[in-house]
Amino acid sequence: MELTYKDFCNEIKKGRLLGLKCEGCGKVIFPVKSFCPDCGGNKLKKIELSKRGKIKTYTVIRVAPEGFNPPYIVAIVELPEDVLVMGNLDFDPEKAGLFLLGKEVEIGYKEVPGDKYSGGGGIALLFSLVE
């Protein structure tokens, strides 16, 4: 794969949010794939994605999977490249509301240790509101 999850994690820790771009049709691709879903091409190159986007939707998780500490916000953010990313919003869950929709966020990350079923740890994107 041109971009593995391990590389994705290593790069975000260096401040770069990576995705792929199809050299055949120009489509920006996220999450990572080995073929372009639009044209079927396999010439995909790593690109750096914007680290700013807008909140498309969100929820406050109050009943969580084992290993997570509720309440916390999960949000989907739309990037200018027309791709979506999921992560946590660094914001008081008790103050969350529909006003969050469309708000601009900056994209960082947090390390998640994982559990015995997760194949090691990973990262969750962490969004913070841009004022």
Partner: peptide, 17 residues
């Protein structure tokens, strides 16, 4: 599991979104 799971998404959460 990689691009959603580590954010702590749940099924009620997915339909809440």
């Amino acid at each position: 599991s990689r691009f959603e799971g580590f954010a702590g998404i749940t099924f009620p959460g997915a339909f809440a979104l």
